[in-house]
Computed example of a mutant assay.
Amino acid sequence: MSEAIDTRELPALITGYLAAHQARDLDAALACYTEDAVVTDEGHSHRGKREIRDWLARAASQYTYTTTLVAAHRVDDRHYVAVHHLEGDFPGGVVDLRFQFTLDGEHIAALVIEP
């Protein structure tokens, strides 16, 4: 069971990652992950920093879009959800995506992105 929180209450690690991701700063975004982190996006899992870097690079160049953080939830001390509203030139043009984070200390151990 998760509780809705103000988006400003997300951990600094998550807000820093989201800012780097939005700015398409691959090095800063990648530094937020553990060495063996797993990202799942569009049904595909990317394991470890090399695969995550490749995914970040593809995601940054594939479409043009704007993103707005519209909601946040705290599941527990290690699990948070950030909901983003995206509009752009991707199929469908508009979507709300749930970024589901699993934290391990000062790094992201897992991220699942889905509608």
Score class of each variant (00 low, 15 high):
residue 3 E to Y: 15
residue 4 A to M: 15
residue 5 I to E: 15
residue 7 T to K: 14
residue 7 T to H: 03
residue 8 R to G: 15
residue 10 L to C: 11
residue 11 P to F: 08
residue 12 A to I: 14
residue 12 A to F: 13
residue 12 A to C: 09
residue 13 L to W: 02
residue 13 L to I: 05
residue 13 L to T: 08
residue 13 L to D: 06
residue 14 I to R: 03
residue 16 G to N: 01
residue 16 G to T: 02
residue 17 Y to M: 02
residue 18 L to S: 08
residue 19 A to T: 10
residue 20 A to M: 09
residue 22 Q to Y: 14
residue 23 A to W: 10
residue 23 A to D: 12
residue 24 R to I: 07
residue 24 R to T: 10
residue 24 R to Y: 06
residue 24 R to N: 04
residue 25 D to T: 01
residue 26 L to F: 08
residue 26 L to K: 14
residue 26 L to V: 13
residue 27 D to C: 05
residue 27 D to R: 02
residue 28 A to D: 01
residue 28 A to L: 04
residue 29 A to S: 01
residue 31 A to M: 02
residue 31 A to C: 00
residue 34 T to I: 10
residue 34 T to K: 07
residue 35 E to F: 05
residue 35 E to T: 08
residue 36 D to S: 11
residue 36 D to G: 06
residue 39 V to N: 04
residue 39 V to G: 03
residue 40 T to I: 12
residue 41 D to S: 11
residue 42 E to K: 14
residue 43 G to P: 09
residue 44 H to N: 14
residue 44 H to T: 13
residue 45 S to F: 10
residue 47 R to F: 08
residue 48 G to H: 02
residue 50 R to K: 08
residue 50 R to G: 04
residue 51 E to T: 00
residue 51 E to M: 09
residue 51 E to N: 03
residue 52 I to A: 00
residue 52 I to K: 02
residue 53 R to Q: 01
residue 54 D to M: 05
residue 54 D to H: 05
residue 54 D to L: 05
residue 55 W to L: 06
residue 55 W to F: 03
residue 56 L to I: 04
residue 56 L to G: 03
residue 56 L to N: 03
residue 57 A to W: 07
residue 57 A to Y: 10
residue 58 R to F: 11
residue 58 R to C: 06
residue 60 A to D: 12
residue 60 A to P: 02
residue 61 S to R: 15
residue 61 S to F: 06
residue 61 S to G: 08
residue 61 S to T: 14
residue 61 S to P: 01
residue 62 Q to S: 12
residue 62 Q to C: 09
residue 64 T to V: 12
residue 64 T to A: 10
residue 64 T to P: 15
residue 65 Y to N: 12
residue 65 Y to S: 13
residue 66 T to M: 06
residue 68 T to R: 12
residue 70 V to L: 06
residue 70 V to F: 03
residue 71 A to M: 04
residue 72 A to S: 04
residue 74 R to K: 14
residue 74 R to T: 07
residue 76 D to E: 06
residue 76 D to W: 14
residue 76 D to L: 13
residue 76 D to C: 08
residue 78 R to A: 14
residue 78 R to C: 10
residue 80 Y to H: 08
residue 80 Y to M: 06
residue 83 V to P: 01
residue 83 V to G: 04
residue 85 H to P: 03
residue 85 H to C: 13
residue 87 E to T: 07
residue 88 G to L: 00
residue 88 G to H: 03
residue 88 G to W: 00
residue 89 D to L: 01
residue 89 D to M: 02
residue 89 D to Y: 00
residue 89 D to I: 03
residue 90 F to E: 00
residue 90 F to W: 02
residue 91 P to N: 02
residue 93 G to D: 05
residue 93 G to N: 00
residue 94 V to Y: 07
residue 96 D to N: 13
residue 96 D to W: 09
residue 97 L to S: 02
residue 97 L to I: 03
residue 99 F to M: 03
residue 99 F to Q: 10
residue 100 Q to M: 15
residue 101 F to S: 12
residue 102 T to C: 12
residue 103 L to F: 09
residue 106 E to L: 12
residue 107 H to Q: 09
residue 107 H to S: 13
residue 108 I to F: 03
residue 109 A to Y: 11
residue 109 A to N: 08
residue 110 A to L: 08
residue 110 A to Q: 09
residue 110 A to C: 10
residue 113 I to R: 04
residue 114 E to M: 14
residue 115 P to A: 14
